[in-house]
Amino acid sequence: MSINVSGIIFSSLTSIVILFQIALALGAPWGRFAMGGKYPGRFPISMRVIALFQAVVLAFLGLIVLSKSELAVNQWYEFSLSAVWFVVAFSVLSSIMNLISRSKGERAIWAPVAIVMVITSLIVALGYNYD
C-alpha cells in the first residue's frame, strides 16, 4: 500500500470519526458507542464539549498525516516528519482503548477502525511504498 493511499484511508476514517463526534456533540443518542458506553443515550453537556474537542484533535491528526503523505498542507511537511509519530502513538492508544471498552458496540465498530488507522499512520510515518 502506498503512502498516498494510506494517507487517504487514514484521513477518510478520521473524517468519519470526526462526523461521529460532531453528531454526539449535537445530541445524537449514540453514547453507547463512545466513552465505554458510560452515557448510553445523549451525552451530557460536558461530554458534548469533550466530543467537540476530540473532533478538533482528530482533524489536526488527519492534517498531519495528509501533510506527511504530501497530499495537502504542504507547509506542514517538515513538522509532520516528527509529528506523525504522535499520530501513530495516538492511534495505538485509541486502538487499545477501543479494544478494552466495556461497550460491545464501541469494540465492534471503532476498534477495527482504530486498528486500520494504526496501520495506515504507521505506513505514512515509515514512508514506505508497498506498491
Rank of each mutant, 00 (worst) to 15 (best):
F90K: 01
W30G: 15
G7H: 05
I100T: 15
V124G: 11
I45P: 13
S95F: 14
S12A: 15
I50M: 14
S80T: 00
V88N: 06
S94K: 08
A89P: 06
L81K: 13
L58Q: 10
W30Y: 15
N4I: 12
W110H: 13
L126P: 10
Q54V: 11
L58S: 13
F90I: 04
V87L: 05
L71I: 05
V56R: 07
A25Q: 05
W76S: 03
V92A: 02
A83E: 05
A28E: 01
G36S: 07
F53N: 04
Y39P: 03
A108E: 06
K104Y: 00
A125G: 09
Y39S: 09
W110L: 11
G31M: 02
I100Q: 12
V65P: 01
G36W: 05
S95W: 08
N4W: 01
Y128Q: 11
A25D: 03
A114D: 11
I100G: 13
L126K: 10
A111V: 07
S67F: 03
N74H: 04
A25L: 05
I123E: 00
I123V: 13
F53P: 01
V65F: 03
I96H: 09
A83H: 01
G127T: 06
L93K: 10
K68V: 05
L52I: 01
M47C: 12
S95N: 12
